[in-house]
Amino acid sequence: MSTLGTRLEGKVAIVTGASGIRSDDLWGIGEAIAILFAREGASVFLVGRNRDKAEASLARIQEEGGEASFFPADVSDNDACQRMVAAAVKTYGKLDIVVNSVANAPDHPTSVVDVDEALWDSIIEVSLKTVMLTSKHAIPEMINAGGGSIINISSIQGVQAGFRASHPYSAAKGGMMALSKSMAVHYGRDNIRTNCLVVGQVHTPHVAVVIPDEARQMRRRAGPLGTEGDAWDVAWAAVFLASDEARWISGVDLPIDAGLLVTTPLAMYPYLKDPE
C-alpha cells in the first residue's frame, strides 16, 4: 500500500470537502479521493473548513510518501475560492484537477411544501453554487496548464427520488449534472473535461451518524449487487476520470451505485421485503 502509483503523476489536484467527519475506519468521499490521488502520484490540495478534521487524511498521505497540503476555505465564498486556486498554483506550480466534493443535505424530510426558504437557499449554495465558484477560478489556471479535469460528486437523488423527500438536495444534484454537461461542451476546446460521479447508497461517516442499522441494511439490499459500497469505490472512479486514461471522456454521469439506477421498484421488491 505504500508504493506510489503513477496514474496521476505530475498532476496537481484540489479536493474540496476533504475534511469531513470520520468514525472508526470509515472514510469520507473527499478524504478517500485525496488519499488515492496522492497514492497515484498527484500533489493534492485538501480544502475544507476545519484543518483538525483533515489531519487523519494528511497523516495517511504522508505515511504513504505522498504529497499533500491543507488549505482552509469555505468554498461557498467567492474570494475564498479565488485564494484557494491561487494558493494551489503558488504551492505546486499549476492546477490540473478539481474535485467538488462538498455537499449539505437536510437532516429531516424536506419537500417543496414544507421546506424553509433559507434552508433551500443554503443547500443550493453549498451543493451547487460552489461548483460554479471553484470552476470560475480553476478553469483559467487549467487552461494555462493545457487543460484539466473537473469531477463533481453528484448523487442518484439528482436522477431519481430517494426514500424520503430531500427536494433541495435533489435540485442541487440535478443542477450539478446539467451544469457539468454545459461546462464540458463550452470548455471542451480548452481541453477541460467535466464529469459527474453519481453516487448511490454508499456507507460513509455522514450516513453512519444518521442511519440506524436496519436502514443501512435496506440501502444495501436495494442495490442489485447487494453489497455495501464505500468511499473507496467512489474514489477509484475519481482516479480514473482524473487521469489521462479518460482523456476522451467528458460530460458523462458515471453511477457508482451497485446497479441501482437500472432497477425498477418491483425488480428489487423481493430483496427488500424479507431480510436476507
Binding site: 457539468s180 454537461k181 454545459s182 464540458a184 461542451v185 471542451g188 473535461r193 448511490g200 454508499v202 442489485p224 449487487l225 453489497t227 459500497g229 469505490d233 472512479a237 476522451w248 471522456i249 467528458s250 460530460g251 458523462v252 458515471l254 453511477p255 457508482i256 451505485d257 451497485a258 446497479g259 441501482l260 439506477l261 437500472v262 432497477t263
Partner: peptide, 16 residues
C-alpha cells in the same frame, strides 16, 4: 466492484 448497469460514454463530450 460497486459499478454495475452503467453506460459509460467515451465520446469527447458528444452526448452532452
Amino acid at each position: 466492484r460497486w459499478i454495475s448497469g452503467v453506460t459509460l460514454p467515451v465520446d469527447a463530450g458528444l452526448l452532452a
